[in-house]
Nucleic acid binder design. Structure first.
Lengths: 247, 247
DNA sequence: GACGTGGCATGACGCAGTTATACCTGCCAG
DNA sequence: CTGGCAGGTATAACTGCGTCATGCCACGTC
């Protein structure tokens, strides 16, 4: 069993791994570099994680755990639809603060670990991020269920509705961190906010109520600028997917 | 200039690269393996692509070109909303048929090429997939615009609306190919189809009209099973994000 | 027929993941 | 106190990776 001095070697490796991943991208996430970061030899990766795949897995689990904590920190109010927006904002905040980590979580990075799950169904692997991811997902299911109980959303399968919201934020965030919506956060205003309002309307909410909850969830008034009802179109709308390198 | 015998070496490398990527995942996409596939030495990658980054870029461009062609093959009818569904189905078909290629296209693979665009804004690179991706996006914008002209969708910025639809399908497809919705296509029925209908309703369409267009776009009656209007909830709904390895 | 140019193979370099081996340190038995 | 034991760790070597300097060789041209 590992020595329990002050900071266990295993945890220091995970911390260093997440730090290197975010600072230098997946290419910096090598066994030699991570171990050198804490002053150990590359053998430590095999002692504690049985190889790089295990390290990737531990990093994924830790990233999901912090993600789950971040979603839990989003405020819960008496307006459950406002809470939906709050969770969505926290979701995006986390992804934008740690884009590499987010890609790792959802199988978009990790050259060796779990990248091709479609072709890799038979691979036996001990720990899966699914339980902790399900915990995060359940946070969304709960506020959806509350929204239905409050009469804001049509009664329906709360998990299916939460899946629609998750799909929306996930797709948006991945496009945003890859630069398809520009790098200035305009996409939230142009795409995500109207998408969310439109989806909520389709789920049964009144448009004015949804927009009110959206504005109430904004930490500052600039986050969501309510579209001018008279103009009809959204001001300053971008032309959709844009080059990764603007200009 | 390259010799123009029968199959140019450059094109054969791109073909072999796409094939290796889909068959063996990103790990199989090495300079040595791709060149060995066509009986050349690894030097060919530098002769034609100036390194692996250039090969990744060429593969991404070719993947986007085939994707664009696939979307263009989706039938266009007199019902523009039906065409929206048809494009969405073609989109998903392509992504599910070539999941690794799809990840490469949207910056999720490619350890060396454009993976961390957030940290890599200053990198100068000649060709970008943005123009061809914009062509695909414009196909969606066109049918959205037709939907507005036909009075099915509220008049709005067609690009912003197309961005919402794109976000939805992109997010869904990435979760689906990673196994979060299971591997049996149930997610289309549980999540994507109701999401699309709900979004279209929020965009101004009538629910019955949207569901009618959806059913009309299905190549066979089983693709979208219309939710029973009496039950309210979707039958057979899954519990949202699921383990990558079911069981 | 000699020449130069461009495509390509060869071989080397550094770095990656991985692993066999040996060492070293802390613990327990006697 | 001493000897053995066991587990964490460093070392070094293996293979395969991207990359590049070098040189060969087959073309097209004068």
């Amino acid at each position: 069993m590992p020595r329990r001095k002050e900071p266990p070697t295993r945890d220091r490796l995970v911390d260093a791994g997440l730090r290197l991943l975010e600072d230098g991208g997946p290419e910096s996430l090598s066994a030699r570099k991570v171990c050198a970061e804490i002053g150990a030899s590359s053998m430590a990766v095999y002692t504690y994680f049985d190889g790089m795949a295990g390290l990737y897995e531990a990093l994924t689990l830790e990233a999901f755990a912090r993600f789950d904590r971040r979603l839990a920190e989003a405020p819960r109010t008496t307006d459950p639809v406002q809470d939906v927006f709050a969770i969505g904002l926290a979701y995006r905040d986390y992804a934008l603060a740690h884009p590499q980590r987010y890609r790792l979580m959802f199988g978009a990075t990790a050259p060796g670990a779990g990248l091709p799950p479609v072709h890799d169904l038979t691979a036996e692997r001990s720990a899966s991020p699914a339980p902790i991811a399900n915990a995060s997902f359940e946070q969304l299911v709960t506020v959806v269920r509350r929204s239905m109980a409050a009469g804001r959303l049509r009664e329906d399968d709360a998990s299916a509705v939460a899946g629609q919201l998750w799909t929306m934020v996930h797709g948006f965030v991945l496009l945003e961190v890859s630069g398809w919506f520009g790098y200035d956060g305009q996409g939230v205003f142009d795409i995500l906010a109207p998408h969310c309002v439109n989806l909520l309307v389709g789920l049964g909410d009144e448009r004015e109520a949804a927009e009110g909850s959206m504005v109430a969830a904004a930490p500052d008034p600039e986050t969501f600028r309510t579209p001018a009802p008279a103009a009809g179109a959204l001001p300053g709308t971008r032309r959709g997917p844009r080059p990764r390198r603007p200009g």
